[in-house]
Write a protein that binds this DNA or RNA. Structure first.
Lengths: 217, 217
DNA sequence: TAGATTGTTAATCGATTAACAATC
DNA sequence: TAGATTGTTAATCGATTAACAATC
């Protein structure tokens, strides 16, 4: 059955499926079942079948899923079957690191513009991209048809940068700054804040006596 | 009411509360209600009260929560009231970037050792830490009492590094490599894979006609 | 045909939210 | 006292899992 509203949990699993399917394709495996998929990805096979069935009948009863076909379908669902240019704001160490992932993201998604407000950084080259000043942001976004931005500026600047991005027409933001951005409801924001990840990880450390009853899942 | 098993969703919100409370403390605000908290963090006030109540009665009816007291409590729950040393494996760009967050994490969590398997990187300095070879990993982890590790190596090496870390006694891993690590159930792993974030973000891009009915939440 | 595996409905489980008595 | 706000129970909502008919 098609459409309904798709939950965020489902959407977040799709890239995970895609990544593993690409792997299978590289190993020239033609077909995969929800059971194998579930085993490798630590997910319930019924969940995988259900996730995929939201978008169409991609499998064949008795057979499983054709790897190449499913890749194509998921890429389409995620809109990765078109070139998506990404802007990166904040040319610090983290921004620098992320721009290296261009190769991994292949042709479909690519950081094609880097901005920084700090004058001495402007004009420097990062992997063949030249760091641009913030006042070129609007025009570059329009020219390159950029719809997604990554924020890697210090937290004190993040909200301001987000506001500028949004007024320049950006639709989605991946925010690495450890702050909660206030944005209009039609802008999609994902938090990629590793300090939160790290701190929640500490909770699960074992600690001798009194709390050894929380089973770490 | 104390204990029960705490869900992961609850644990992941605690660092978010903590971050905002630190903010309030810096602004010398003494007290906060679940309503204000909910407003700023985009969460339901009842959820916040319930989350906190799992761990104790931290609030005062009619008043709210004492900021300083609540910070202290959450820090204790997350085990951030002790020094936690963190190992970082992979001295590439991303590893380099993360080591800069030491200042942000304050005294409680700190990257205190960096490892890399690539000989020319060994011996280099990154923010006052010297990159160590992989064969010093076990001894350093023991000496420094390190219990948490961050993996920032290429995906092809990630599983191998994880195995080494686990056999050296690490309890929790923050994994930046875009692979699903196979680990024993008593090891806590959080995925910090920004390629997944980015790809799921693309799903929510607007696209003219046929799919304009998925409301982006 | 027999075995495998999907798509889907129904059952279960868990998390979020509403409501309110207790109380500062 | 009146107003505010907690902690907690009950209601709701949503997501996961089990089960199975359909079918390759």
């Amino acid at each position: 059955m098609k459409s309904d509203k798709i939950s965020e949990a489902v959407v977040r699993r799709l890239p995970v499926y895609l990544r593993f399917l690409n792997d299978l394709q590289n190993r020239e495996i033609l077909t995969v079942s929800s059971q194998e998929l579930g085993q490798k990805l630590d997910l319930n096979p019924a969940q995988i079948r259900k996730d995929l069935a939201y978008f169409g009948d991609f499998g064949r009863k008795g057979i499983g899923y054709d790897v190449t076909y499913l890749i194509e379908k998921i890429r389409h669902i995620l809109k990765l079957d078109q070139q998506l240019n990404v802007a990166l704001v904040g040319a610090g160490n983290l921004g620098h690191a992320l721009s290296n992932y261009n190769a991994y993201l292949k042709d479909t998604m690519k950081i094609t513009a880097i901005f920084d407000s700090y004058a001495p950084k402007v004009g420097r080259k990062i992997n063949s991209l030249t760091v641009q000043p913030m006042d070129e942001l609007g025009s570059t976004i329009r020219e390159q048809g950029i719809r997604i931005a990554i924020i890697t500026v210090p937290d004190s600047e993040a909200q301001n940068v987000a506001d500028i991005l949004i007024s320049s027409g950006i639709e989605a933001i991946l925010n690495f700054a450890p702050v909660i951005l206030k944005t209009p409801p039609n802008i999609r924001v994902h938090a990629a804040d590793f300090t939160t990840d790290l701190q929640s990880l500490a909770y699960y450390l074992r600690d001798g006596k009194e709390e050894s009853e929380h089973e770490q899942q």
